[in-house]
Every structure is written in C-alpha cells, then in structure tokens.
Simulated assay, not measured.
Amino acid sequence: MSELQIGLLAIGALVVVGVLAYNRVQERGAKRAAQLSFRSGHADVLMEQPVPAAERNLLQETQRPSVRAAPPDDAAQPDPKVDYIVELSVEPPAMRPDAQTALKTQWSAIERRHARRALLAGSADGRSWRAGLQLVSRDGAVGEADLIEFRSAVETMAAAIGATVAAPEMRAAVDAARALDDFCAETDIQVVVHVQGGPFPGTKIRAAAEASGLALEADGKFTLRNDEQRLLYTLGARDGSAFTAATIREAAPEALSLALDLARTPDTRRSFESMIRLAHQLAAVLGGSMVDDNGNLLDERAIAAIAQQLDAVRARLESHGLPPGSPSALRLFS
C-alpha cells in the first residue's frame, strides 16, 4: 500500500471519529435540554406528607388541570402582590377636558390589548392614577416583552395628559412574576368527587340539588353560590353533557361529578363539607356510590385527609395575602 493510500485512510479514520464525537456531544446536549424542559420544580402540595395508600388516590385527584374561570369583576383594583403598577400624577390644576378624553381613549386601547389583565384606578382628587398589569394568570407568567409594551403604552398615555410616571424596575418585576407563577402552580387545586352507579333520573338529581340550594345555570351545571354570588362548587354530569330545564326529565347520566376550585372558593372548609354532604345525599337518594377518578370508593378517612390538606393550602394562600375567593385570588386563578 502506498504512502498516499495510508495517508488517506488515516484522514478518513479521523473524520469518522470526529463525526461520532460530534454526534455524541449533540446527543448529550439534546438529552440535557429535554430533561430540563420536562423536569418540574414544583412539589406536589397534597402529597408532601406521607399518607396511607388507601387515601392516596383521592389526594391525587385533588390536583387536576386548571379550569378556565370567569374574569374578575369591575371592582378589582391594582394590587402590588398581583400587578406590575405604574403610577401617574399631574400637578394642579386638574386635567384639561381634552386630557381626560385622551386618558379614556388610550387606556381603553391598553385594556383591549391586554384582555382585561390591565386595571386603572384613579385618586379621589383626579390628579393621580395607578395603572396595573396582572403578572400571572392560569395561562402563566407575563413575559418581559408584554411588560415593556405595557409600560411604554402607559408612558405614552402619561405624556398625552401631561403626567409624570414612576415605574418599578423591569427585571425585578419579571423575577417576581416567575416566583408568583411557581406559587400559584403549587396552590392551584381543584377537588372533584364522583357519584356513579347510574343511569340516574334527571328529576331526582334536580330535586336533590335544589334542596341543597343549587341552581341550574347556563353552562348546564347546578351551582351553589353564596350571598355575594361567588361560586362555591358545581354539580354536573361526569361525561360533560349539559343539563337544561327543557330536557332534565329525559336526562339519565351514568355518573355525576362535584367540583370545588379551592383558590376561587371563599370559606373553603365549609364549602368542601357542603359539597361532600351533597355527594352523600345523592349517593343515598340515587342508589349510587362516591368514588374518585379511578373508581375507588371514598370513605370518611380519605375525605378527612383531603380536608386537612385543603386547609394547609388555604393557609398558604392566606399567608401570601391571597385568601381564597378574594378579588386578587379571583384574578390570579382565572
């Protein structure tokens, strides 16, 4: 074999080794990226304390994918625990009429752009305002680009009305949004129990629900609300089919589901106990049984365990100034 052939073979071997080494590096990099992408940093709040196996299925069923909730009411105010707040102020005398028009017009555009996540509150003397952008919702944390866009729009509005602006540092707001999002992910709990053993007559379901104070609403579920019309829990067909006043006589679901959204429910413990009482009543009246998602029967020990865990999550929310059912909690968990 000539020296040229030997040289070419050596070069070829080096190329192969180089390609294999590059592929190995790429493979490890991709594997590490995948691990980082799919690894969750959140502890399972309801499973932090050891529980007997018989109770574990029910506890797992309380941490479910979040459900979409109605937006907050118009009485909500910017809250530093929840919002990135830009403060605006004008010097006396009060604003000119054309400046007031500019304020309304430009704020309406900001509000439309941010889909009700933006709030504006004015002082009694009409010379200062607090413009807030909600940092977190069930869609996740607000991004830095959105914060920059919001702040820029508010500064433009301030210039139009002759106001000065004071705004928090952007990086700190982004970090706060991420931390708040982590906290919300850990405390976003929904409890769902089922009554199975149907078909169940729709008329009996309606009678039991109405006797417990629930009313049939437009979404096809029976709903219990408090005196302030805050949602406490719902009762519906497990397969998602809607109940209607016109068809309730023909309704015959195989199973029912009762659901309580912890962060959005005031007086959580009493609401949970009321929901469980209704589940027991339905099971007795309809000849069914209370089960979790896996069809396991729910006994009093499991129900007591979940009540204690809900109390713990409620206490965490309250310690952060976000009592379940409060205006700020309703905004965050929506």
Rank of each mutant, 00 (worst) to 15 (best):
R206M: 12
D261M: 01
E217A: 15
T247C: 01
K221N: 14
T234D: 06
Q229R: 15
G202K: 10
L262H: 03
D227F: 12
R269N: 05
K204H: 09
A245F: 00
T203G: 07
L258C: 02
L232K: 10
T244D: 01
I205S: 11
D227W: 09
T247Y: 00
A246D: 08
L278Y: 08
L278E: 07
S241L: 06
R264D: 00
L258T: 02
D267W: 00
E254H: 07
R270H: 10
L258I: 01
A218W: 04
Y233G: 08
R206C: 07
T203H: 04
L216G: 14
R269V: 14
S212W: 00
T223C: 13
A211W: 02
L224W: 08
G236M: 03
A208P: 07
A215V: 13
A209D: 06
A211E: 06
R264E: 00
E210V: 14
T268C: 05
A246L: 05
L216Q: 12
P253R: 04
R230Q: 15
A259V: 01
A252M: 06
R225I: 08
R249W: 00
A207H: 11
L256G: 04
A242E: 08
R264L: 10
G236Q: 05
S212V: 00
L214R: 10
R277V: 09
G202D: 07
M275R: 08
T203V: 14
T265S: 03
E250S: 15
R269A: 12
L256P: 05
A252F: 03
D267S: 07
E254C: 01
I248C: 05
R238G: 02
L216I: 13
R264A: 06
A259C: 02
G236S: 09
L262M: 06
L258N: 02
F243P: 02
A252Q: 12
T244Q: 01
S212K: 04
A218C: 03
L224K: 15
A215K: 15
E273W: 02
E254A: 12
T244C: 01
P253K: 04
S271L: 03
E273N: 13
A279K: 06
L216A: 13
I205G: 12
D227A: 15
A245H: 02
D261Q: 06
E250W: 07
L258K: 02
D261P: 01
A245L: 05
S271G: 09
S241I: 04
G213V: 04
A211I: 01
A246E: 09
A252T: 09
F272S: 07
R270L: 09
A246W: 00
L231Y: 12
F222H: 08
T268I: 03
E273F: 04
R225D: 08
E250P: 03
I205P: 13
D267V: 03
K221A: 15
A246R: 09
E273C: 08
R238W: 06
